[in-house]
Amino acid sequence: MTMEDVRERAARPEDLSRFVVERLNAGDVEGLVALYEPDAVLALPDGGVARGTDEIRRAYAALVADRPVFTAGKQQPTLVSGDLALTSVRLPGGGVTVEVARRQEDGTWLWVIDQPSLPI
């Protein structure tokens, strides 16, 4: 059995935000990549964008390399329209995240677009 077989999947769009903090703190790069659709986009701190699985994997590998500790923020109300959901978290110390998730054929959710840090 692989880690992928035992990782919890997002039954609700809000689960993705909880999973990302857990997996960041665990240094679980493959678990982080598993939260995204294969062609998803992730905004990077330098203003660039990671597109697709390989670039998202590289971005997270660099982020967790020094084992920083991440703190969960306050989940904001999710907006759902059909198979799309807009999620957002108010971050500790200021700022917010904004993500678009899509319901998958099996009923679980994955991010399609992730903007992990916007100032407020």
Rank of each mutant, 00 (worst) to 15 (best):
V21E: 05
D5S: 15
R12E: 13
G82Y: 02
K74Q: 14
F19E: 05
G48M: 10
R18H: 05
V69R: 12
G73P: 05
A65E: 14
V49N: 01
T2W: 11
V20Y: 03
K74N: 06
G27I: 03
A59H: 06
E30Q: 13
F70V: 11
P68E: 09
A43N: 07
Y60V: 06
R7C: 10
P116Q: 14
A50S: 09
D28V: 11
K74E: 15
G48P: 06
M1E: 15
Q75H: 07
V41P: 00
S17F: 00
F19W: 02
K74I: 05
D15R: 03
R58T: 15
L84H: 08
L110E: 05
L42G: 00
T71I: 12
S17W: 02
A62C: 04
G93P: 01
A26F: 02
V96K: 14
A26V: 06
T87N: 10
E4S: 15
V29G: 10
D106L: 05
E55T: 06
S88H: 01
E22S: 07
R23F: 11
V49M: 10
A85N: 01
L110W: 00
P13M: 01
L110D: 06
L79C: 06
R51M: 08
T97K: 12
V100K: 02
R18P: 01
R23P: 07
R102H: 13
V100E: 01
A40D: 03
V29T: 13
A85Y: 02
S17Y: 01
G52T: 09
G31C: 06
L91W: 08
R90D: 15
E99T: 07
L118G: 09
G27N: 03
A85H: 04
N25K: 03
A26E: 10
D114C: 04
T71E: 10
